[in-house]
Design a binder for these strands. Structure first.
Lengths: 134, 134, 134, 134
DNA sequence: GTGGTCTAGACCACC
DNA sequence: GTGGTCTAGACCACG
């Protein structure tokens, strides 16, 4: 499981990490019970402070995505969290509107958006090829 | 053009304003040349500081969405900005992946996402019905 | 003598007018004693408020570039004003540095700047072809 | 990197800062990746409000000259922005005409302008010796 | 300590 | 009235 962070990104580093892990879970690339790199190990890979990775793991654990077993490591939870249907629907609506705005302002149409969506679906399941853009 | 802000929202106030305006432009509810409320006027409507609205307007102008004319007011630009196709594609990819993640983690499938997208499309063109959620 | 104004320009309208007239005088296109359009007439041409043109004329007169003869009209002065050599030198230095910055940031070199200068010299003497850019 | 501001100058403080930084970049005195003083630090040096410096930094970032990293600081961008060749040419033409006007109205000739330009070139690369004039 | 956001109020220039 | 600038001070998020 290869992660990337971009210090210039508006999104905080720990959130970038959180997002990538949740996306990996959503895409099925990280499965229930799978072991994650220790925050120390990951911090070396990403060349960032260990505390930053730890914060990401802490929040993911608080949200129920991962579980920590002292002395053994951190694992993908087998009971992924579910927000209320209402919250889910609202968030998706918001994201969907944002996606459409980006498309329309770029001169694209609804069918193009669906096309992009299909490409993204493929990426989700197989992993991104490069770092987050700023 | 009715706007809403939610001080509890994670997104900064000025960004909430920016987003609503760009979405209104994308949805065709704000047309080229149309006059916006002055930043003072809007600040009263939204019950926030004038400078906060001004910051939103300033950034929108820097991005090319709107134009200001001293003493006359602020208007929707007739030349909406175009990021490079590469940047556009990247941003849309990112948003699309995010949308899919939200859906899959909620237990929904690809067809559901398309359905949500259609609803969002309708909202974009006709305006939201309620304030931003936190 | 054809003038142009751009309401979106950062420079105030009356300053845009002032600049064009002083440039025309510098370029020899407006000669001593030559008659200018009345501020009323010019305001119609430019589709702006007469007061705005009047302000430009007032300031140009205060600076000594033009002279008003009640009932007869406004004329180019035969005694163009001279700032102190020190002020002149400072202003030119500043403008020169700005020109060089623009060039270097654009990847051009000193010889290119001289080339641009020669083109500008030609324009100065024969008049611009289009409106001011924002 | 020593900056100066002059509150009496017609140019807004934040623009004076912007100009000096872009000129320093153009002159090669500020290099890609170099760290700038924090906006708080600089505000103390210049004895002006931190927000004023921040505004300058914000705009420079929007223009692509510098990049900020939360918690780490602000750095000179390694990808200086490039306006379209057309915009560049227009701006330079305008500045060049202005420089010539100043010269001709001062009774100087084209060779004098080139001389001034050479002096300015030297200043650009080595920094100004005094504060901005009003 | 760094940047990010917001406020309340002031003054000026422009139209 | 409009937008443009500046201040002084506060609070938060991030590393």
């Amino acid at each position: 499981m290869q992660l990337f962070v971009n210090p210039s990104d508006e999104l905080p580093l720990y959130r970038q990490i959180m997002r990538q892990i949740t996306e990996a879970i959503a895409g099925g690339r990280l499965k229930s019970g799978e072991k994650l790199a220790s925050h120390r190990e990951l911090s070396e890979q990403l060349v960032i402070a260990p505390l930053t990775v730890k914060k990401a793991y802490d929040e993911l654990e608080a949200l129920g995505f991962i579980e920590t077993q002292r002395g053994r490591g951190t694992f993908v939870s087998d009971t992924p969290p579910r927000a209320s249907r209402r919250e889910q629907a609202e968030k998706m609506q918001q994201t969907a509107r944002r996606l459409l705005s980006q498309a329309y302002l770029a001169g694209l149409g609804f069918p193009d958006v669906v096309k992009v969506l299909k490409e993204a679906d493929h990426e989700l399941a197989h992993g991104p090829r490069k770092k987050e853009s700023a």
